[in-house]
Design a protein around this nucleic acid. Sequence first.
DNA 1: TTAATAGTTGACTATTTTGCTGGGTTAAGT
DNA 2: ACTTAACCCAGCAAAATAGTCAACTATTAA
Lengths: 164, 164
Amino acid sequence: MRLTTKGRYAVTAMLDLAFHSDIKPVTLTDIAARQTISLSYLEQLFSRLRRANMVKGIRGPGGGYTLADTADKINIADIIAAVDEPIDATKCGGEANCQKEQACLTHDLWMGLSDQIRDYLKGITLAQLLEKHHVKSVAKRQDQEAEQVIGIHRHTELLASLNE
Amino acid sequence: MRLTTKGRYAVTAMLDLAFHSDIKPVTLTDIAARQTISLSYLEQLFSRLRRANMVKGIRGPGGGYTLADTADKINIADIIAAVDEPIDATKCGGEANCQKEQACLTHDLWMGLSDQIRDYLKGITLAQLLEKHHVKSVAKRQDQEAEQVIGIHRHTELLASLNE
DNA sequence: TTAATAGTTGACTATTTTGCTGGGTTAAGT
DNA sequence: ACTTAACCCAGCAAAATAGTCAACTATTAA
């Protein structure tokens, strides 16, 4: 699992879509203007997102993109995985072709960590992020309320799984 | 918080160090051989790690690197932060220089997510990863009683080195 | 003292990824 | 027909990544 600006662009665009595509499809031109991402770069990203069945493209006037599913069914890990190259799991490609035992061991450790991050991001949906933002803006408007609904208990939960 | 192969190299190298530097300092040449990372690339990474006070360099014959602190005091987030460029938090650099409200909102959402990942990784130490691996390898060894004997002597060798 | 070891530094190169431009083609609505 | 917008390329400049080379300095064993 990698975390780069590319994935960030994708998540941002998907959030924008979740925000605006309730009524009608959203054009990439709109997203490009709102999020200041170049149209052609968005096209690249959405080409992958569409092939991964995260969004649906509707052609013609009045067309655009909509989410392929409800926002609570779309998680962050899948979005990032969709736009990232399939990571080649370098050098120790799946099978044990490592000559050295140590190399494989530390490789395993890293992969385990990577899996945990993926699981963590799999547990966060677009709907949760929108809700969190909603809560936050409401809280800012009224008075300070306790936010952070999503993060904390999940954090401890995952740490607990480390200690098994 | 970014997650790239660079950070992975750094974590892998630090894990290798945590494994082997109990008795004496570990040379980058050794790490390069074990982890199949180029020596000079390691030099770059360890230059940053040293400046970030994650490791100590010891010169002269018998020299090498050791952890600057015990393995339970070194967390993954700090390792990655040490080798990564300070992320520029693009376009909305700290202050609210976003012209559009939406851009800032989704930006906030992403930054919040990024913070959560950082907190998560801050909660995972080298010691935890080593411990997890230790348990796992023992279990694997017990399972492989009737099977091929390839890994066994390496395991005992490793366990022996842990008890010294 | 001397030679070997090993870290330190900086500049340099190759490759990959990133973000973007611009050209088109195809499907759908007016 | 004409427009709109998704779709699909080929390519390209800048940046990041990964690795190389060479000169240097500090340490210490012999």
